[in-house]
Write a protein that binds this DNA or RNA. Structure first.
Length: 211
DNA sequence: GACCAGGTCCTTG
DNA sequence: CAAGGACATGGT
């Protein structure tokens, strides 16, 4: 049953991959991901989709457009994601960073992962998870995303580590392959949504009943 | 009506 | 440094 923490991480990834196979996760171009990563903070994805559609309809769904846009316009378009004032401020901060520092998402893609990560973390409203989502899904880097679900599931699986430590653990056992990283996180979220309620969590049982 | 969602920041102890 | 509150709309 209990192996090292890293082998447990590897096991979780393997079991979930076998169970779910390949699933579509976070489609869209770099601009979509940069914006969606902020909008999805503490928010259901379905509500983010609505906001993205509205932004698109109003030609605001790009970093360059948000950089220029009137905050009130942004607020109005993203209301469905909740926290709309805070998120508007965060989108503005992110857009400002990307445009002033790199001249846009395109040029930004030429820079190394660590440099980008450090820069993103200095933007107000961009924390570890959002930064890693942007790097993994927006810039196709092998930067693993640790969210509340991952943290929770690892706890159930007997790996009661801090999020920052979990990131290192997973990155140690994952194949250094873009698609592996995207899928691994996707599988964990799908699994958690299916089996972990806040009050009722079946994860512990499933995680420990082998296979 | 209560409770929660693919977090992050700010304030307290 | 850990814990608690604020931010807000939409679905169960």
């Amino acid at each position: 049953m209990s192996g090292s923490s890293s082998s447990e991480c590897a096991r979780i990834i393997r079991v979930l991959k076998e169970h779910y196979g390949h699933i579509p996760w976070w489609p869209g171009d770099t601009d979509d991901v940069l914006i969606g990563a902020v909008l999805t903070q503490q928010t259901r994805w379905e509500n983010v989709v609505r906001a993205l559609a509205l932004l698109k309809k109003r030609s605001l769904c790009s970093v360059a457009a948000l950089y220029e846009a009137d905050p009130a316009e942004i607020e109005n378009a993203i209301r469905s994601t909740g926290f709309y004032k805070v998120k508007t401020r965060r989108l503005k901060a992110l857009a400002t960073f990307v445009m002033r520092e790199y001249g846009g998402p395109g040029p930004m893609a030429e820079y190394p992962t660590e440099l980008l990560r450090e820069g993103l973390l200095h933007v107000s409203g961009i924390g570890e998870e959002t930064a890693d989502c942007i790097l993994c899904y927006g810039f196709h880097r092998t930067s693993f995303v640790i969210d509340a679900y991952t943290h929770h599931i690892c706890g159930c699986a007997g790996i009661p580590e801090q999020k920052s430590r979990l990131k290192a653990l997973f990155e140690k056992v994952l194949l250094p392959d873009q698609d592996t990283y995207r899928q691994a996180h996707a599988h964990i979220v799908e699994y958690a949504k299916e089996y972990c309620g806040k009050k009722r969590c079946e994860t512990c049982i499933l995680m420990n009943s082998n296979e």
